[in-house]
Amino acid sequence: MKLYSITTPFLQLFCPGRDSRFVVTNKPNQTPIVPEGTVYFRGILKNIADYRFQILKMVLLISGFVFMFSPSASAQTFSETIKETVRFQNINSSENELYIHNINGNVTVEGYNGDEIQITYHKKIDADTQRDLDRAIEEVEFILEEESNRILIYLDAPFICVKKRDGKISYNINDWDDDYDFMFDISIRVPQNTNLDVSTINNGRVLVENIHSKWLDVSNINGSVELGNVAGITDAKTINGDITASYRENPSGDSSFETINGTIEVMFPENLSADITFKSMHGDLYTDFKNVQRLQARVESSEERGHGKTTYRIDKFAPLRIGNGGPTFKFEVLNGDVYVKRNRAT
């Protein structure tokens, strides 16, 4: 593999303080091993002249982006912080449910030994003009609904289609007005036994701490999912981000942890007994639990209608059993590793 390493003054303009070297390999499908912070392009450059031509194109392209996305001198910003307090009708019920669905921004939920749901949200809007800003302030709403043992928190606007089914909420965003951007950072303190369904989509993480409930449903799209000192059957997923979790008690039922581009790291108490299934295209599973055994690969059968044929599928990844086995914990990742660790703090 032939490597060219050339320092360019152009990158110093846009990435000051970084190691601004391009490392180029002459093997199209091979990624070179480079120092941390090195910017590299994968491709074939026949000679230095080609290389310089590529640099020139890159500089022109970046210059165009800088011009296109330079903030306007007339840009307007609005921000406010609102606090609200609500309660469940029966604070001692194990069926109490809180649904929080954000679009842009962080969601933080903390359990505590109280009987109120303390909500704080910071709303920020950036617009091209004052007229767009005023319109955005009116259009984008923070909605709080109370339904006996269920509380719903979500956003609404003319371009947001809110769908409710079986008490759950989903979004369909159409024709988002690019004349303004909005961000909500939501922080909530809840009784520790509250069942949670929490999500965001962009520009934020989902953090849940000190919750001891029946179930947790936590998701993100472009960001991380973090669970700390929790207990409950769990469904945690994201697309572009890591999943980290530490349990004060092992989940009593089947749970799943899924990401596409990221690492999954979960810590369970040392008395864990569970069956682990793992699927990955570019990753491995690691564990420091001692009593681990590999089970036989699972075989699933399906019958083709009208043909009288039965198809058998053998799972590529044989499950693992930790301890005496028990509920199934599913780990799925496309590009990343999975770490199943002992939580020695419990």
Rank of each mutant, 00 (worst) to 15 (best):
S280H: 11
F257D: 01
F268W: 03
G283Q: 08
S301D: 08
K279N: 14
F268S: 01
L295M: 14
G308C: 11
Q293R: 12
D315G: 14
N271Q: 12
L272Y: 10
E258L: 02
E249R: 02
M267Y: 15
D275I: 09
K316Y: 06
E300W: 05
I243Y: 03
F289V: 07
A297S: 14
D242M: 05
I260D: 04
E303R: 15
G228R: 08
T234R: 04
A236N: 13
L227G: 04
N240I: 06
A231T: 04
I233F: 02
L285P: 09
I260A: 13
S255E: 07
I233H: 07
V299Q: 14
Q293Y: 00
L227Q: 02
N261M: 06
L285Y: 13
D242C: 07
S301A: 09
M281S: 14
E265K: 03
K279S: 14
G228C: 08
G232S: 11
F268K: 01
L285S: 02
P251T: 02
K279F: 03
Y247P: 03
M267D: 06
F317E: 00
S301V: 07
S246C: 03
G262R: 05
T238V: 08
L272A: 08
I243E: 03
R298G: 13
E265F: 01
S246N: 09
I264N: 04
G253M: 10
S273W: 10
K309P: 00
N291A: 11
K279H: 12
G262M: 06
Y247V: 02
R298F: 00
F268V: 02
T310R: 15
L295H: 06
K290E: 15
G283C: 12
I233L: 08
N240R: 11
P251D: 02
H282E: 12
P251Q: 03
Q296A: 12
H282N: 15
S280M: 10
N240F: 12
T234H: 08
E249S: 03
E304S: 15
N261F: 04
K237P: 09
K316H: 12
R294I: 15
A297P: 12
P269V: 01
M267R: 06
T259S: 11
M267L: 14
D242V: 02
G262C: 11
F317C: 00
G241D: 09
D288C: 09
E258H: 06
K316T: 13
